[in-house]
Design a protein around this nucleic acid. Structure first.
Lengths: 352, 352
DNA sequence: TCAGTTAATAAAACCGGTTTAATATAACCT
DNA sequence: AGGTTATATTAAACCGGTTTTATTAACTGA
């Protein structure tokens, strides 16, 4: 590969002139510009990205960071990422997906600064070390989801109001007359599951319905959403037949619930109402019955996060911002009023 | 941020010693190593990624490249990416998603080399300029999908045998007695759609069924898969009621077909067979009826592509390799034998 | 004892750009 | 004409690492 010196020599000018022709930071006469570009074309030259980044102290790359070792993007992550990418291409940023295990990053030869101008952190958990790390390294950060504990006031983040989401989903079912509501929540420690769980409890409390800890279950991180939804709902519907409604973390999980219900001869929505936190508007309407849910607008979350981060990288400003993206309840047909006689059936009068 | 010079000064050693403590390329005495690490810890030092990349001429980053301006990852891309990421984290590579529009990259101030060691190219199209560009820049490349024209023998790639896939899907339907088969193919110019289209025609030919160009339609890139599947299948089923089977490019597209059929009172699979090229094993089985398809194993495609590329980056070898991932026909219930009287119905005896 | 290794560290050059400070020319003003 | 200002270009320092080539000290062996 040709270097800037080669071009300078060929064009008969100095390095800095070549540099300025490309960066356009200082004016160079039309004449000289032409000569330099001709030389560059002839040598098939393009400025070295790393050398430039080193000198500029900026990479125009932002990072997307998932916690944990085994990274597996979900449908929701896909929405987020599309939003992020969209915003990136608008501002000339590239996106680096960082999925290297800590064990690797801590080996001496691999210790280094991050090759990004800033990071978007996904799926914050309660004891999330990622934020403190980045603050220490003085790296701009935006979190998608609520940052844990103190960090809520220390870093910018974009989130849905998940306490409200939990409340709304629960309230919606309560109004339909359900009072034994199973909540299949996201995995424990994620702040999103904490928030939604809180909303769930608050709604119950407000309605005077006692909270039953058995009915709030966190996803097993080692299972797929759909198989978790299937097996846990089957088990719980067996064990506690008075459950008349289920809130699920995702549409895939809801699908598992559908399958369990169908196998058990439980009709949705007649015998069981299902509501999901779901961003999908292609598959959800085609569920049988169509799946009611709370739409989270993942793409918008991603876009706003990227926007915040890019602002922060560019302006070197450090105002901590919080953006809440409003959600939308989409009623489709998987929820119905609690059947009056369901209680009686549980009472033992099955054949009446 | 502290630099290597700061650490050297603090530890009372030379830069090169500090460098070697971190890179471990030359042995440094235990004693000195301790002193250097202590200084580094004290100063919160970590080697600068870009300075290192510049000196090493390697970034340990590979790129994932989508064609076109408006990048939007699909479900299938998600599978690919998960596979790629998996392999990356195994070998200490990061993944850069490059979605910058050409218009941006061609502006003088943004012209530069790529910040990656190599690129994985997605969705190759017939006149794909990306490959030649990278060969000119001497950048390792692996394509997912068949590279167009001459490049097939010039760059490594990972693909399914899409001619065979097209043949198999078609043959499967032919054997069931269908001979008016609508193929809703991927968008024109993609090599994958060309290959599948070829397989489709070959199977027809082999069975002595005349090829009707009306029955081979390419997706409109500006529509979503599902709405394209819906509108085009509705239109075609109206216009050519003798169609008894449809092959779709994706499961989402199949969903559109399902919706159209249901609105038109056409029963699947009794009146219409549907088969899709689909990687999904969560939603597809839950279609009503469950969707028969050819599974492409996107994650494996991604993994193998990453493996090839990383090999190529590391070894500087230039042997061109081709890997074909075998696919699997999954029969689920959306296809049935062509009903005997369907032809008669078309003949006008609707009420018989 | 002394040349011949070997091992650990250091000095200086290098990777390929940007940027600051200096210089040379042209243009402008009174 | 002489001094000021603006404009285009350049030399040299710098970004923060790695690497080649010394240098020094300690260890062989005859």
């Amino acid at each position: 590969m040709a270097t800037i010196d080669d071009v300078a020599r060929t064009a008969g000018v100095s390095k800095s002139t070549v540099s300025n022709v490309f960066s356009q930071k200082r004016p160079i006469s039309k004449e000289v510009t032409e000569r330099v570009l001709a030389a560059a074309r002839k040598l098939n030259y393009r400025p070295n990205y790393w050398a430039r980044s080193l000198a500029n102290r900026t990479t125009r790359i932002i990072g997307l960071n998932m916690p944990g070792e085994r990274v597996k993007f979900s449908l929701f992550h896909l929405s987020l990422m599309n939003g992020v990418l969209n915003e990136c291409s608008l501002h000339g940023y590239r996106l680096l997906v960082n999925s290297l295990p800590k064990s690797y990053l801590n080996e001496l030869p691999h210790v280094s600064s991050e090759p990004v101008d800033g990071d978007i952190l996904l799926d914050p958990v309660e004891k999330d070390t990622r934020i403190a790390e980045r603050i220490r390294k003085n790296l701009p950060v935006v979190v998608i989801g609520r940052p844990p504990g103190d960090f809520e006031s220390k870093v910018s983040y974009v989130d849905n109001d998940n306490v409200a989401n939990g409340e709304n989903a629960t309230q919606y079912l309560l109004r339909l007359g359900h009072n034994r509501i199973l909540f299949l929540n996201a995995s424990r420690y994620k702040t999103v599951s904490i928030d939604r769980g809180l909303g769930y409890r608050r709604s119950l409390e407000a309605a005077g319905v006692p909270f039953d800890p058995q009915l709030l279950i966190h996803k097993d991180p080692d299972m797929t959403s759909s198989s978790f939804g299937y097996s846990i709902s089957k088990e719980m519907l067996m064990k506690l037949p008075d459950i008349t409604a289920i809130i699920t973390d995702t549409d895939k999980m809801a699908l598992g619930v559908y399958r369990a219900a169908s196998e058990m001869g439980i009709a949705i929505p007649d015998d069981l109402s299902v509501i999901a936190f779901s961003d999908d508007s292609v598959f959800a309407p085609e569920f049988n019955p169509p799946l009611t849910g709370i739409k989270l607008f993942g793409e918008q979350l991603g876009r706003e996060a990227a926007k915040l981060l890019i602002d922060q990288c560019a302006a070197k400003q450090h105002s901590v911002k919080r953006i809440l993206i409003s959600t939308e309840m989409v009623e489709r047909g998987s929820c119905a009023a609690a059947s009056q006689n369901k209680g009686k059936i549980q009472g033992g009068m099955k054949n009446e």
